[in-house]
């Protein structure tokens, strides 16, 4: 059983390593991830939001609905923990 798990893990890792062959190198300034959307955020953040920290301006201004959804996730997780761990009154339920 242990051998089977190890085989599954090694095969998955080999497939993922094969997938990195086409990726841009680490720290490449011309990688597709840093050419398409992020220049807009980097150049326009000061004149549109007046916040020097780009991460904060994107988190709380451009993508504020994303942060709202994240808060909903935390609220749901807290409610789930409370419902699971509350004191049972009569032994069951």
């Amino acid at each position: 059983m242990k051998i089977l798990n190890l085989i599954v893990v090694v095969i998955t890792g080999a497939i993922l390593i094969y997938g990195t062959m086409d990726m841009p190198g680490w720290g490449d300034p011309d990688s597709p991830a840093s050419l398409h959307v992020s220049p807009r955020y980097i150049t326009k953040t000061m004149e549109e939001t007046a916040t020097p920290n780009m991460v904060t301006s994107v988190l709380a201004d451009y993508r504020a609905y994303d942060t709202l959804g994240e808060t909903t996730v935390i609220f749901t997780a807290g409610m789930a923990c409370i419902l699971l761990l509350r004191k049972r009154r009569n032994g069951h339920g």
Binding site: P29, A33, S38, Y41
Partner: peptide, 9 residues
């Protein structure tokens, strides 16, 4: 643009 790290990730 190339002077700052990509903030989106």
């Amino acid at each position: 643009t190339s002077a700052y790290i990509n903030p989106l990730p």
